[in-house]
Write a protein that binds this DNA or RNA. Structure first.
Length: 445
RNA sequence: GCGGGUGUAGCUCAGGUGGUUAGAGCGCCAGAUUGUGAUUCUGGAAGCCGUGGGUUCAAGUCCCAUCACUCGCCCCA
């Protein structure tokens, strides 16, 4: 520990929130769990299976994709902190994709291909938190990895699954922009630009710094000539739905086999997507995705209502991510959904209805004078019938017990009789109607 | 990492130009109410005024530093 490190001393400091590490109250966690269940159901309905790889990876694995400036959290033990150099250094993963590739490589002989998996796990990034950006967040990924070439149909199916997932939690509408890296690289190399990856990186900033900013960077950083810059910019402006976009690219009359390949792929993908839902998927030549490993189709989705809010889904095709870990060429394609990002945004906008503070369906109150076993048996009968049942263990005045039920928004209150031969009553918390009932046969309604 | 904003009770905030023992509303707890949630009334608990230093007879208030939260840049889910 360095001497400059400050210590947390007051009790206030010990309990207060840490920026970028969100914590929800139970009523919101309940909603988040519903989202997770819903995602799981949809992913599984398309035949994706779950894995949960470890949260840490060797630092070298995480840095594999080239971006060494990634804000990753390294881990170490408090004791033994001046550890020997033999110990490898580990860090918390900052996404699911690279660790998934490592997992596939590690288990390649036991997995069946095409391997279709989903993962819903926390990821950690050290970037400065702000609206929609966290240091600890839940990410939901679906990916397909194969030992053979992956058919293009997956390029269309995967964003459709993602849209279904988002729709299932009522978080829409979304706008998804689609592009293909081969078009970008093919187009640029057709213009004899050598540094295609940096060109892509700069073009990706179009919506942030505008055409002038991009033109300046292309000129200064990459020494591109004005006519080439014009071509690049005009090209990046191309966007829209359907085939007119494809035609516009062809009309620019730049020739390269890679470009042609990319256009054909994109044409197929967008055709399929349009069949699913016209207008939701837009082709956009300014979409590149920052991550270096993408090689084909790329996607990026935002809330239609909040275009300036960061991307909530992103993904694409990578030809050789797993191949970095094993001596085989394994192509993959996938997408990830920023669940925490979506959740926090909707919460902030007041669009998340928390209508329960607990999963409890029924509170069995402690009727005055009733034998404890009778109350417990009543709760158990109801529980065995599939209800979530909570018992009020203390013989307090009813006012306090009912207040508790009200605060926790428990929908039903059960009143056991004072003795075994008495009659049960159940009360609806909302309507406040109370009626005679039997725990063996009662049905809510 | 770089800039802007903000730190007083659980929450929202008052506390002109420094001046006794730091306030309100809401919330919380208890009672009125010997057993069915509200309202009302009564009482109560709760604060190193973010932290450290400085100026002063005197600092919640002025100065410096620092930390935290927050908004933007970078980057991304």
């Amino acid at each position: 520990m360095s001497p400059s490190e400050t210590k947390i001393t007051t009790s206030k400091e010990r309990v207060r929130p840490i920026s970028g590490f969100p914590e929800w109250l139970p009523e919101y966690r309940l909603v988040e769990l519903q989202w997770i269940d819903s995602f799981r159901k949809i992913f599984e309905s398309y035949g994706f299976t779950s894995i949960e790889p470890r949260s840490i990876e060797p630092v070298e694995v995480l840095l594999k994709q080239g971006d060494t400036d990634k804000e990753i959290y390294s881990i170490g033990r408090l004791l033994n902190n001046n550890s020997d150099e033999n110990e490898p250094s580990y860090a918390l993963h900052y996404d699911m994709t690279v660790p998934m590739a490592r997992y596939v490589a590690a288990n390649i002989n036991q997995l069946n291909f095409p391997f279709k998996r989903y993962q819903m796990q926390k990821a950690w990034r050290g970037e400065r938190p702000q609206d929609g950006r966290f240091r600890e967040f839940l990410q939901c990924d679906i990916d397909v990895v194969d030992t053979r070439p992956i058919p293009l149909h997956f390029d269309a199916e995967i964003p459709i699954i993602m849209h279904e997932a988002i729709e299932s939690i009522g978080a829409g509408p979304l706008t998804t922009k689609v592009n293909n890296r081969k078009i970008l690289e093919g187009f640029y190399s057709g213009l004899s630009i050598s540094d295609t990856s940096n060109t892509i990186r700069i073009i990706d900033k179009l919506d942030k710094i505008g055409t002038d900013g991009v033109a300046t960077m292309l000129s200064k950083d990459l020494k591109l000539t004005p006519p080439i810059i014009d071509m690049v910019l005009n090209f990046a402006e191309i966007k829209g739905a359907g085939h007119s976009v494809i035609d516009q690219i062809r009309d620019l009359n730049v020739k390269s086999s890679l470009l042609e390949e990319g256009i054909n792929e994109l044409e197929f993908v967008i055709q399929q997507l349009e069949k699913y839902k016209a207008g939701t998927f837009l082709v956009d030549m300014s979409i590149a995705r920052g991550l270096a490993y993408y090689t084909g189709t790329v996607y990026e989705s935002r809330f239609t209502e909040y275009p300036n809010f960061p991307t909530i889904c992103g993904g694409g095709r990578y030809d050789n991510l797993v191949g970095d870990f094993v001596n085989k060429k394994l192509p993959g394609i996938g997408i990830s959904i920023g669940l925490t990002r979506i959740f926090a945004k909707l919460m902030r906008e007041g669009k998340i209805q928390a209508n329960r503070k607990t999963p409890t369906d029924i509170l069995v109150v402690h009727t005055q004078g009733a034998p404890y076993d009778l109350i417990k048996d009543t709760a158990n009968i109801l529980r065995a019938r599939g209800f979530n049942v909570e018992q009020y263990h203390e013989d307090r005045k009813l006012k306090a017990q009912l207040k508790y039920a009200g605060e926790k928004m428990i929908p039903w209150i059960w009143f056991p009789p004072a003795d075994r031969n008495g009659i049960h009553e159940v009360k609806n918390s909302v309507t406040r109607v109370q009626a005679i009932s039997d725990p063996k046969t009662w049905l809510p309604g």
